[in-house]
Design a protein around this nucleic acid. Structure first.
Lengths: 190, 190, 190, 190
DNA sequence: AATGAATGAGCCTTCATTCAT
DNA sequence: CATGAATGAAGGCTCATTCAT
C-alpha cells in the first residue's frame, strides 16, 4: 500500500531538487527545465504541482525557513543559559557557513535577486528575518528581564544586525574573521 | 565639430544605461537587448565596446564604487571630528537608502546573484567592501589612537558589520528602524 | 481525428525540411531559424524535438543513409549478375549526380565542413562509407569467390576508392567524364 | 631600411594566419574577427588588403595551390622514372595526410562547404584539381607514349580518381589502409 | 596604409507557460 | 495524476562589412 507514501511524492521531489538548485545557483539562474530533468518529471507534472515558478520559489523559502530554523534549534539544543544560546547562535553561523561552502543565506541572496518589493518572495524573506529578529528579542528578554523594554529592543536589534552583517560578509570574503569580531562584540553586549 | 566630445560616447552611454538597469532590475535580469535599445545602439557596437556582459558588469561595479564613494565623501564633507564622520557614515546610509527607494547596495545584491566565488564580479564586490572596511579602520585609528591595535581593529570591524547588517535589513524591510538601533550602538562604541 | 497521424508530425517535418536545407546549403550554412520557418514551427518546438542542432544533424545523416541506400537498392533491383550490380552501382552514381544537380554526397560534404574527428557527425559519415565499402566487399565476394581473401579485399577497396573519387570529381567539375573512365576501369577490374 | 620588406607585410600576415585557420577550422567557420585578432591587425586594415572574405578565400586557395604543389614536387625531386614519380605521388599523399593530422585536402573540404557552383572559390578548386589531373596526364604520357591517346587519358583519369578517393577516405577514416590498396592498384595500372 | 567604432542580421539555445492527451 | 509537444519571446554572442579619422 504505497498509496499514502506516494501521495505528493512528485511534488516533494520537485521541491527537494529545486531547493538545492535555487540555493546553489540562485533562483533566477535556475530554470524549470533543469529542475524537472533532475527531478525526473514532466513539464506538465510541474505545473500540476505548482502554479508557477514563483509559487515554487515561495514553497522553497517556506521550507527553507523550517529547515534552517531546525538546524539552529539543533545547534542550540544543549545550551542552558540564554547567554550561551545567543553566543551559540553566532557559533552556529560559523559552522553553517563552512558547511554551505559560504553560499550564504538563501533569503538574503534572493533579496538581492528580487528588486520588486511586492513580490511574494520578498514577503517570505521579510518573515524569515522577522522571526530571526524575534528570536533575538526572546533571548534578550530572558537574559536581561530587568532592563527597560526599549533597551532590550535595542540590544536584540543590534544582535540581529550584527548577525546579518557577519553573515553577508563571511559569504563575501569566504572567511571567518567577521565572526570573530562579532563574537567578541556579542560578549560585550551581554 | 563634436569630434572630441564624441570619442567614446557610445561606450559611456552603454555603461550609463546599464548601470541604471543593473541596479534597478538586477544584473542577471537585465538583458543586452534592453541595454542597447535604451542606449540607442546596435548589438555589434556593444561587443566592440565590451568584451562580454560580464565585462560590462565589472565596468559597472568599478564605476559604481567611485560613484558611491563620492556620495559618501560628499556627505562627510562638513564633518569635523572622526566621531561625527563615523556617525555621518550611518546617517548617509539612511539618506541614500531613501533616495534609492531601498533598492540597497549594488554590490551586495550582485553578491546574492553570483554564487561563483571566482567570478570577476565577486572580486569587485570584495574590493568595494574591503575599502569600506578600511574606511572604518581609518576613522577608528583617528578617533581612539590610544587604544590597542587589536581593539581598534575590533571596533572598526564591528562598525563595518553593523553597517552591512543595517544596510541589508533596511533594504529588506524598506524601513528606517534598523538605522536607529545602529546609530545608538555606534554612539556607544565610540 | 488526425490524432494518430499527427503524432510526431512536427519532428518529422523539421527533419524533412532540415534534410533538404542541410543538403542544398550545407550543414553549417543552414540556421535553425530558417529550418523552423520553413517547417512552420516555433523555436521551442525544435528543442523539444531535438536536443541540439548537432542532434538534428545526426538524425539527418542517419535518415540520409537509409534514403540513399534505398535509392541504390532500387537502382540495382533488376540486376541479375554481380557484374551488372557493380557496374550498376556506378551507373546509379551517374543518374543520382544528375538528379541532385551535382550537389554531391551529403556525407562527404559534411566531412569537409567538420574538422573535429570526434564529432558525432563524423561517426555517421564513417559508418555510411564503411557500409558502402562493405557492399563492394559483398559484391566482390559473390563475383569472384575463387580469388584469395586479400585479393578480393583489394578489389573491393579499389572499387570503393574509385567510386568515391568519381563522386567527388563529378561534383567538382559538374561533369560526367569522371564516370566514363571509372566505368571502363571497373569493367577491367571484374 | 625596412621599407621594402615591410611592404605588404600586413596583407601577408593576414593571409598567413587565414590560411592556417581556414584549413584547420574550415572556411565558413572562421570569422574575420579571429583572423585579424591572430594577425594583430585592425578590421579596416583587413578590408584595405582584401575586398571581401571571399577575396581572401580565393587568395588562400591560390597560395595553397602553390604550396601544395611545392610539397609534391619536393617529394618527387629524387624520383627518376615516371613509374616512381607516379608511385611517389601516392606515397606523398600518405606522408602529407599524416603531417596534416588527416585534415585532408583544403580544396575538397572547401568544395563541401560551397554548394554554389559559380563561386570564385569553386573556380580555384576546379583549377587545382584540373592541374593535378594534368600532372597525371603528363606522367602517363611519359610512361607509356606508345599507347593510344584515349588509353593514356583513361589511365591518367583513373589514377586521378583513385588519388582523390584515397585522399578523401584517408581523411574520413583517419587511416592508411586506403593508401595501401591504392598503391597496389597503381602498380597494376602501370 | 592603417585604425577601430558602428552596423544590424544572424548564430544556437533557454525561458516560463499552456494544453491536448 | 501525469505526460511531453508546442509556443514565441528572450538569452548572450558573432557575422561580414562600412566609414570617418
Amino acid at each position: 500500500m504505497p498509496a499514502v507514501t506516494t501521495k505528493g511524492t512528485k511534488r516533494a521531489e520537485i521541491l527537494r531538487v529545486a531547493s538545492r538548485l535555487f540555493y546553489e545557483q540562485g533562483y533566477h539562474r535556475t530554470g524549470i527545465q533543469q529542475i524537472i530533468d533532475e527531478a525526473d518529471t514532466a513539464k506538465g507534472t510541474f505545473y500540476t504541482c505548482f502554479k508557477s515558478k514563483e509559487d515554487l520559489g515561495v514553497a522553497w523559502l517556506k521550507a527553507r525557513h523550517q529547515t534552517w530554523n531546525g538546524w539552529l534549534q539543533q545547534a542550540l539544543a544543549g545550551k542552558r543559559t540564554t547567554r550561551t544560546k545567543i553566543l551559540g547562535t553566532f557559533e552556529f553561523l560559523g559552522n553553517w557557513m563552512k558547511d554551505c561552502d559560504y553560499r550564504g543565506c538563501a533569503f538574503l541572496n534572493t533579496l538581492g535577486e528580487t528588486p520588486q518589493a511586492d513580490s511574494p518572495l520578498r514577503l517570505e524573506i521579510a518573515e524569515h528575518k522577522s522571526e530571526l529578529h524575534d528570536l533575538f528579542r526572546h533571548f534578550v528578554a530572558d537574559h536581561c528581564p530587568d532592563r527597560s523594554e526599549a533597551e532590550r529592543e535595542h540590544i536584540a536589534t543590534t544582535l540581529f544586525l550584527l548577525f546579518e552583517g557577519t553573515l553577508v560578509q563571511m559569504q563575501n570574503f569566504r572567511a571567518h574573521w567577521p565572526l570573530q569580531s562579532a563574537l567578541r562584540q556579542v560578549e560585550r553586549l551581554l
